[in-house]
C-alpha cells in the first residue's frame, strides 16, 4: 500500500525543483548590487526607528494554543467520522460526550474573553 504515497514524494521533489531551479536560473540574469540603502528594512521612505523585531501582541499565542486544542480534537473526530456507520448509536453518544466537553471548554473560553483576543 505504500506505493500509493510515491506520488507525494515525486510532487514534493518536482515542485521544490521547479521553485529552486527557476531561482537558480534567474541568478545570472538579475543584477546584484546591494547598497546600504537597499539593504535597509523598508519603512515607507523614512529611517527605521528602533529595533525591527518589534514585540507583537501575546494574544497571538493564545490563538496558536487554541489551534492546537481544536485541531487535535478534529484529528480525533476524523477516524470516528469514517467508522461512524459501524459504531452505531454507542459511537454517536460517545462522540456527543466528547463534543460536549469541547463545547464546555469553548463556552468557558468565550465567557473568559479568550476569543476577544484581537478585538482591540
Amino acid at each position: 500500500m505504500s506505493a500509493v504515497y510515491l506520488p507525494i514524494f515525486v510532487m514534493l521533489l518536482f515542485s521544490g525543483a521547479l521553485a529552486g531551479g527557476m531561482l537558480l536560473f534567474s541568478m545570472p540574469f538579475g543584477p546584484y548590487n546591494p547598497t546600504r540603502v537597499k539593504s535597509e528594512p523598508f519603512e515607507c521612505g523614512c529611517r527605521s526607528i528602533g529595533p525591527n523585531r518589534v514585540r507583537f501582541s501575546a494574544q497571538f499565542y493564545i490563538l496558536a494554543i487554541l489551534l492546537v486544542v481544536f485541531d487535535i480534537e478534529a484529528a480525533f473526530m476524523f477516524p470516528w467520522a469514517v467508522l461512524f456507520s459501524k459504531l452505531g448509536l454507542a459511537g454517536f453518544i460517545e462522540m456527543l460526550v466528547f463534543i460536549g466537553v469541547l463545547v464546555l471548554g469553548f463556552v468557558y473560553l468565550w465567557r473568559s474573553g479568550g476569543l476577544d483576543a484581537l478585538d482591540k
Binding site: P41, F42, E43, S48, N52, R53, V54, F56, F60, L63, A64, L66, L67, F70, D71, A74, L118
Partner: peptide, 22 residues
C-alpha cells in the same frame, strides 16, 4: 525579513490561517 511590516503581516497571516483551519 527583519521588517516591522513583514513581521506584523506574517503574524497576522499565521493567526488567520490557523484559526480558519478549524
Amino acid at each position: 525579513s527583519n521588517s516591522k511590516w513583514a513581521l506584523l503581516g506574517g503574524v497576522r497571516s499565521a493567526a488567520q490561517m490557523v484559526s480558519y483551519e478549524i
